[in-house]
Design a protein around this nucleic acid. Structure first.
Lengths: 348, 348
DNA sequence: TATCGTTATCAAAGCGCTTATGATTTCTTG
DNA sequence: CAAGAAATCATAAGCGCTTTGATAACGATA
């Protein structure tokens, strides 16, 4: 059996109350100097560690935060986006000596009991949620419950609900403008799961908006509905290449689909960017030198964690919503450096 | 305040004992049919969820398992190896409705109090450990404590300590033999952090062993000590290219260094595999078409989780150690398909 | 010496839950 | 119908901890 506070008290010849005070350094002025010293020594000697369960039961604080990932299929941490966000979360709570409790749920095999239990069981002090904005028992329970939480990459029309997100719209606008500056006019778009992902929808709207604004009419057949998988990126390419009026550039709603598109193009013997420019979104690590939009995922995780922590510790909240800027990262698949090199050649 | 078992008992007009029985379906024969029905209804109506802390305090079971990552620097889940192992762990405990408690520690900033507390606080029922086999307070506490644990990718000379690992030796042997079959004789090797990583050391030994066995003498300058970063892979290339007797093929102890090597080679205007064959180890996702050794990381995580679970639930252990086979994945950077194509050309 | 404030310490309640034990009722059976 | 067996339920202890209110010791003051 593990050492309890009682054992320490007995050995020190004091009451458990006194031991508790020196362990937690709370009301410590109520403990005499010598007693304190003595207890501290015995603490080390016996190797005492407070029982989290007992303490949690009494204080209603666990120093655990839950991180829940929802996705269509069981989420995989091999997804660079998720793992980067998680890294940010870990970085923050590492500093604060909190524990991270992870859970992944699939929207397909909804078993509300499980995650609702997670909310209500008193296991965690708060929740970080990465999930598409679908209707579900989970979000209802979250809203009704007293547990603090912060949504990640998930905007919500509610002043009281905390979330962090990035400026999707700006990212797409930058990309389109960049492609236009390289001379492209026929720019196709591969969309994500619009029915589930607000991010995806925002990006699509941004694409339509900026195309129109730039005088490049939006054409139905220039948009392909993908599902965030490389395979769907490949299918998009097949569809685009069948068109009479083929695009000269493709923007994908995320990097996975961009990667899939490039693979398919190469498989068909086409060169990227010479025959087709391709841009992505997310800036996941890859060796394809993808031109893409960077999101500060690590920072988003970190800041979300911080917002949650502020709630848990009842610090004043500076803001309930936080938007992070995106940044267009120009690499090779858009053709920028190709064009530059050509220009140089002509000079000579 | 949340609904407690007392509230339910009161509403149902029974004692808390009876409610507890139907909640846990334990000693359920001691509860009458109608009473059971009634309580179940009230349970739903009130939305009762047992308090994990109270239950844990009483039963000494938390249905949490801890996953601790130790590394030189703070571990990052963006590391495909770690995230894949973690995926396997999540997959297993998802089925069992356990929670995963994550913690990452740096060997640099050792603060034993933190993780020792993690072992002793009663927060978790067991521990999955991914850490280099260095001497530390952590492992001592682990051995002395009563908490079940399983090591991942970390062999130990102790019948009683559970671990999973892969057959590193075979992986390297396969790679070297493959390169030899492609006509290579001068095969260089980029090593990992041998002082910390048993895996790295095993692989190095395997390299020396098979080179000698195949009649290709081991030469000191053909081994470069890297540190698992792409940068060190690049440095290795620089060193190898300075040699009078340059290698024609490079094996890296892990994929990160292999990737770094390839980048450096290309930066220097050399072609892979035409001018230099490169092979890696781990099979992380990449678009470089790396020839590498696949480890069943997901499965390793899954099986480690299972072994721990068996211990926690006091099921009979089938085995304390588990080794997983590796598999050489031949792609393009070794030059196999190049050679094949050449052979075809000659036929015509 | 009686009184009072200060300081150091303790006793005990109670957080929500499980479970051993005992009590009460109902059912069997000779 | 009496008595033992079985079914059903309640009582209460206690897991390890925090925290309030009480107590004791000790000078200092009047």
């Amino acid at each position: 059996m593990a050492i309890t506070i009682k054992d320490v008290a007995q050995k020190a010849g004091v009451s458990v109350a006194t031991v508790s005070r020196v362990v937690n350094q709370k009301d410590i002025h109520k403990v005499g100097q010598k007693t304190q010293k003595r207890i501290e020594e015995i603490l080390k000697e016996l190797g005492y560690y407070p029982n989290t369960m007992a303490r949690g039961l009494k204080t209603r604080r666990t120093y655990n935060v839950g991180v829940v990932f929802f996705w269509f299929d069981k989420p995989s941490l091999s997804d660079p986006y998720l793992s980067s966000v998680l890294d940010g979360i870990l970085a923050f709570y590492g500093e604060k000596n909190y524990n991270i409790l992870m859970n992944t749920f699939s929207l397909k095999t909804q078993n509300p009991g499980i995650y609702t239990n997670f909310i209500n069981s008193g296991l965690v002090d708060g929740l970080l949620v990465i999930a598409p904005p679908v209707e579900s028992q989970f979000f209802q329970d979250l809203k009704q419950g007293a547990l603090p939480y912060v949504l990640i990459s998930h905007q919500v029309n509610d002043k009281d609900v905390c979330f962090v997100d990035c400026l999707n719209t700006q990212g797409i606008i930058d990309t389109v403008e960049h492609l236009i500056s390289l001379g492209h006019k026929k720019i196709a778009y591969i969309s994500g799961r619009n029915e589930y992902s607000k991010n995806s929808l925002d990006r699509l709207h941004a694409y339509k908006y900026i195309m129109k604004k730039k005088g490049l009419p939006y054409r139905e057949e220039m948009v392909f509905d993908g599902d965030f998988t490389p395979e769907s990126g490949g299918k998009a390419v097949d569809a685009f290449l069948k068109l009479k009026n083929k695009p000269t550039a493709i923007i994908a709603c995320d990097d996975s689909m961009a990667v899939g598109a490039i693979r398919e193009l190469r498989r068909l013997g086409l060169r990227v960017p010479e025959d087709m420019a391709v841009c992505g979104f997310d800036d996941i690590p890859s060796d394809l030198n993808l031109t893409t939009v960077h999101q500060p995922t690590h920072q988003m995780g970190y800041e979300a964690a911080k917002m949650l922590w502020n709630q848990i510790e009842k610090k004043p909240l500076e803001y309930a919503h936080r938007f992070f800027p995106t940044r267009l990262v120009v690499r090779e698949t858009c053709g920028f450096y190709l064009k530059k090199a050509n220009a140089k050649d002509k000079k000579h």
